[in-house]
Design a protein around this nucleic acid. Structure first.
Ligand code: ZN
Length: 329
DNA sequence: GCTGCCGGGGA
DNA sequence: TCCCCGGCAGC
């Protein structure tokens, strides 16, 4: 390794209490210019995703993740596309993200969701037709063309430069309790839960429903078992769906399998691939450019991605004007 | 002009 | 060793 490479920089940044596989549990971006983190959260239990508005910067580093980049929704104002996905950590133990808040939130979301019962929810868009079934929502993403910035990274294998790491705000729990769901809902927005398992994309109106879906369809468990062993990987994102958007192209909410009962195409009959995948999907589904080659947004390095104004987020190499080590081509 | 980064150099 | 930056090639 090049001399300029910091000896101290290791693929594994100093651990952060709320990190799961190296990623700050919390989005660092908050819809701003920073690509935020899409990260599996929650220690032992049901895991949801953090992200939405943003995707963790940085392609995975050597060591595990397959395709790297997605594009951060970053600078672009949110759309109907899930923007405030966050960790769902139902009552499980030990989650730094206060479990209680998590529950409350889930409850709240569920309640609110059900209150605003909708015709839209399960793939029943109002008469208004949808030009292109299954993609309306996602099509929002490409609009962020210019922000084909970050890459996602799903797992901790990527190496956050220590200095960068420190720059990310980390206040784990607040978002949960102060989540804008409520207000959003009241503003003609409703929360939907989108399954992130590969090739699924099913959208349900309640987290419990989604968990059940994942449990039965993807984890092959019995539907009626609640939180069986606490080790399930429930990857789904929460979408704040603007009702207006829904009326426009709702059908898109049931992207992949119109017949919700069809199990996603997983290679084997066995358990689905590990969680990292769904996230990747999320990342990949995002905006790199519609037909994004699986993996990354080329040519864009830290400088471009984060901009001069966020130089501290660049990888060391970029800061030193060396070959970027985060966005490898 | 912008971008990525080599190579050189200061502390 | 860490870091910065002049300057150049490629677009
Ligand atoms: Zn870089």
């Amino acid at each position: 390794s090049p001399a300029w490479r910091r000896r101290s920089s290791s693929p594994n940044p100093p651990s952060h209490p709320t990190e799961v596989r190296g990623i700050p549990a919390e989005s660092t971006a908050r819809g701003s210019l920073l690509p935020a983190a899409v990260s599996p959260v929650g220690s032992a239990g049901i895991r949801g995703l953090a992200g939405g508005a943003a995707v963790a910067p940085g392609p995975g580093q050597p060591g595990g993740h397959a395709a790297g980049a997605g594009c951060g929704a970053g600078a672009v104002p949110g759309t109907a596309l899930g923007r405030a996905v966050h960790p769902r950590a139902p009552a499980q133990v030990g989650t730094p993200l206060s479990g209680k808040a998590g529950i409350d939130e889930v409850m709240a979301a569920a309640v609110l969701t059900s209150l605003s019962a909708s015709p839209l929810v399960l793939g029943h868009p109002p008469a208004t037709h949808a030009p292109e079934p299954g993609s309306e929502v996602w099509k929002e993403a490409p609009t962020m063309s210019s922000s084909c910035s970050s890459s996602s990274n799903t797992s901790g294998d990527w190496s956050w430069d220590p200095s960068s790491d420190r720059s990310s705000p980390s206040t784990p729990s607040p978002p949960l309790s102060s989540h804008p769901d409520a207000s959003l809902l009241q503003n003609s927005t409703k929360v939907m839960f989108k399954c992130l398992w590969k090739s699924c994309g099913k959208v349900l109106s309640s987290s419990s429903g989604m968990q059940k879906h994942i449990r039965t369809v993807h984890l092959g468990r019995k539907a009626d078992l609640e939180q069986s062993d606490g080790e399930e990987d429930f990857y789904y994102t929460e979408l704040d769906v603007d009702v207006d958007a829904l009326t426009d192209g709702l059908s898109s909410l049931t992207p992949v399998s119109p017949t919700s009962s069809v199990p996603p195409a997983f290679p084997g009959p066995e358990a689905p691939p590990p969680p990292a995948l769904p996230i990747l999907d999320l990342a990949l589904a995002s905006p790199c450019s519609p037909p994004a080659p699986p993996g990354r947004c080329h040519a864009k390095k830290c400088r471009k991605v984060y901009g001069m104004e966020h130089r501290e987020m660049w990888c060391t190499a970029c800061r030193w004007k060396k070959a970027c080590q985060r966005f490898l081509d």
